[in-house]
């Protein structure tokens, strides 16, 4: 745990040395709320029937979607990026030559990025509140727990991508596919039901495309968060979604751990831990 915290601290100090980039990162997110607010208000009448059951307010729907998107992108991308950076700077090999456990090193390498993204999410939430976003704030702890489950689930994908970086130095656009796919089918800016309906009614696309929403973990997580924070639904009403997300989490984290262990074994066998 101390190893993880030390790595997080170092990542923070490094990021803080790029002060301008840090400022722009926060400011741009706060400003992003302005167009989100106006688009949300403008499309609210049209979207209201579609988002029924996930909050009746489209602006609120977008705010929760934006937060989930930021978290999922960080969860998927943080580890492969950190490993890539560590390989090219040579720091990865050195930290792996210490007696710290692999798990704590991986958490440490990604911890700052996840904490920083959480901070940015709070900025989005604060800016949205200033623009009139209404949420049942007392339900935030439950929502935070579900967001944490989303992060853990997608961290499993990040571990698979990280394993690919260690083994092949490339991820074959895995992160892009997962992030964009989850955003398109997982309900970030429009409800997943809209995809299913659109595919079945308005296109000649095969039905399985509409069913893609069911294999996207974000679908379940976002639906649960929105129902809790915007509709004030009781926890038991979202247990099904949370349970499904939990299964995804278990499967992806296990797959990620196996992939990472295999990649590290392979890198040690091939002597490529620090080759870039």
């Amino acid at each position: 745990m101390r190893s993880a915290l030390a790595l997080i601290r170092v990542s923070f100090l490094t990021a803080a040395s790029y002060r301008f980039a840090m400022f722009v990162s926060v400011a741009s997110l706060a400003l992003q709320i302005v167009p989100t607010y106006f688009i949300g208000r403008t499309l609210d009448p049209f979207m209201a029937p579609a988002i029924k059951g996930q909050g009746s307010d489209y602006f609120g729907f977008l705010v929760v979607g934006t937060i989930a998107y930021l978290l999922l992108a960080a969860s998927v991308d943080a580890l492969p990026r950190a490993l890539e950076r560590g390989i090219s700077t040579g720091t990865l090999e050195l930290i792996f030559s210490t007696p710290s456990s692999t798990g704590s090193l991986l958490v440490g390498l990604t911890g700052y990025e996840l904490l920083w993204t959480t901070t940015r999410c709070l900025v989005v939430l604060g800016a949205a509140a200033a623009f009139g976003f209404h949420a049942h704030w007392s339900r935030l702890p439950e929502a935070a727990a579900i967001f944490a489950l989303i992060v853990a689930t997608y961290f499993g994908v990040g571990m698979i991508a990280g394993a690919m970086i260690i083994a092949f130095r490339r991820t074959a656009a895995l992160q892009t596919v997962v992030i964009v796919g989850s955003a398109m089918f997982g309900g970030v800016t429009y409800p997943p039901s809209l995809v299913t309906t659109a595919v079945s009614r308005y296109s000649n696309a095969p039905d399985w495309i509409g069913r893609l929403v069911e294999i996207v973990p974000l679908t379940y997580g976002l639906r649960a968060v929105r129902r809790i924070t915007i509709d004030d639904a009781p926890l038991r009403a979202v247990l099904g979604d949370v349970g499904t997300l939990g299964v995804f989490c278990l499967v992806l984290l296990s797959a990620g751990s196996l992939a990472m262990a295999h990649a590290l074994r392979r890198a040690r066998a091939e002597g490529t831990l620090s080759q870039y």
């Binding site: 170092v10 040395s17 050195l94």
Partner: peptide, 21 residues
């Protein structure tokens, strides 16, 4: 390679000291 170039020597040493418990 292996050092954090944007950090001070002290910070680099503190990091590895912690990693070595």
């Amino acid at each position: 390679r292996g050092l954090h170039w944007r950090l001070s020597a002290l910070e680099n040493l503190r990091l590895f000291a912690t990693l070595y418990d």
